[in-house]
Design a binder for these strands. Structure first.
Lengths: 300, 300
DNA sequence: GTAATAGTGTCTTTCAGACAGTATGAC
DNA sequence: GTCATACTGTCTGAAAGACACTATTAC
């Protein structure tokens, strides 16, 4: 046992998510050479809990009012912060996922909303398989994994990228990113030979991948989409938001039935005029939480 | 920003789980006044990653060989370590969940396996609702929550404990524990007026609740039960293990069909003699991972 | 009228739950 | 034979997915 604990620095990283115009956005700050997530040191004297610290961090760096906040994962790999290489202390960081509503905008600061598919273009299947997936990523992982001659690795690639008849698992965002990292398909990898998607500072792209995966998994069994929507919305807006997050198109009529008959929303009675037939306005029905064990948006 | 980071100590806590004789067990070490989880400081010089540190910690304290290991949550509330009250540094701890097979036994050390329902008796519904739940916990939470006159709290209690027609959600182990803590139903709560279940050292019971909840949720969509079973097993053994973890009885014939037709297991061709008709022996079929997006044990 | 979006009804297949009943061992 | 456990078949109702079709606005 160490008497005093070897040098560890504890920090926080925040993935702040919003959906605007069917585009899933993440809040970024200008980093040294690439966009960065809001982050900073954890100050135990100031905050009673890690969650409060994350809330304050986001508030200070972006002037946003966060609703939903959830701990994601704690990242502590050696050299995840480049300053460690020069002998700096180990940087351990607790990642948080924050969801903010549509109307909210970062004011003043240098913060910017970025569509997250800029960092993960292969994850957007809404207009059919993304060109970069079919044209570049899949051939790359297939070829590179085969060249390694590692059966376990090849199997992981097959499962994560849905090769050879395996099913594409929407949630496996982190697995796919990690495989691309291992295979040198992203610039931040030590032995990069390809550069799919835009990079982020440090390991922030990994943290974002964790957040997207978590979010995609969770909308299925928790009503968290509504954190991203205004109190009143049309079913098309709800569907568009779910599609933006999940990166896939849903069948309109079935989605509508699933969601309205599932008791997760209720009509307000109002209607909203759009470009076609006016749409009924709905609101979230909090009672579902008591009625159903896993109330989510029924997507596979 | 602090120049040097205020005093934070980073540690690790491990929930090591095994199932023996249909009893879900957690590995404990003797604490000062209550059973404790294996835990220790994170030493950045020794371990490249937090996961490796957790692996080493478990190995050193229990002589166990861990298979599956997963990060649970990072706990950092002020005063979670009692030494903080006397001015000690903030103790932040990364919790890990480890699964070990049946045959493995802690050797030498002072470690002991404890049935986890000793700490959470209200979570075991296998022989019908536990007496302590119906006779004591439910009346207590209903009464205490009502006395607070807090509508949001009452609603949380209703949902978490399945009162007034709300569905009992098997996974909500942590929510139920936290409510009991808030309402003073566990001795470790600052204003305790009741003492349901056995306590653990520090906030270890909260960490265990997190682990049980995670495990119960995850068996539904990931084939992790098999980490707790030997390579070959009968369907009854598999069912018994799932029942032990989930705390509820399953319908035998339906479980059997679900599991065998789901392609998650395959018969080895062998049979095993028990007290009744000999049972067919099965093994896990890793190919499911590629075939189905969420291969788990189909329980609601 | 057309284009665009919103919304309904129905058909089919799949699957979970309930349950009745059969099979094969030990004694 | 009985008891205990293992296993099979069938029925039913709920729900998911596909799809054809209708409704209401703007122009």
């Amino acid at each position: 046992m160490t008497r005093d604990g070897t040098a560890v620095r504890l920090g926080l990283d925040a993935v702040v998510v919003s959906v605007h115009d069917e585009s899933p956005r993440v809040l970024t700050l200008p980093g040294e050479d690439a966009p960065a997530l809001p982050s900073g040191p954890f100050e135990p004297d100031q905050d009673r809990t890690l969650e409060l610290a994350a809330r304050r961090l986001i508030g200070e760096q972006t002037a946003l009012r966060v609703g939903y906040l959830e701990q994601l994962y704690t990242f502590g790999d050696r050299y995840r912060d480049p300053r460690e290489v020069a002998g700096g202390p180990r940087q351990v960081s607790v990642g948080y996922l924050a969801l903010v509503g549509e109307g909210v905008v970062a004011s003043g600061s240098t913060a910017a909303w970025r569509d997250w598919y800029g960092f993960f273009p292969w994850e957007d299947d809404r207009e059919g398989p993304a060109p970069v997936l079919e044209g570049a990523v899949l051939p790359f992982v297939r070829r590179t994994a085969a060249a390694r001659g590692d059966g376990a690795l090849a199997s992981r690639v097959r499962i994560a990228f849905g090769l050879d008849g395996a099913a594409w698992n929407n949630d496996a965002v982190l697995e796919r990113y990690e495989l691309l990292f291992e295979l040198g398909g992203v610039t931040e990898a030590p032995d990069a030979v390809a550069a799919f998607g835009e990079r982020m500072a440090g390991d922030h792209r990994r943290i974002l991948a964790t957040a997207i995966g978590r979010l995609r998994g969770k909308i299925k069994y928790r009503p968290i989409v509504f954190e991203l929507l205004p109190a009143c919305f049309t079913l098309s807006e709800l569907q568009g938001t779910v599609e933006a997050l999940s990166g896939m198109r849903l069948h309109g009529p079935n989605f509508r039935r699933l969601v309205s008959e599932g008791g997760i929303v209720e009509p307000t009675g109002e209607r909203r005029t759009t470009r076609g037939r006016p749409a009924s306005v709905y609101r979230f029905r909090p009672d579902v939480l008591a009625e159903r064990p896993d109330p989510g948006i029924g997507i596979r």
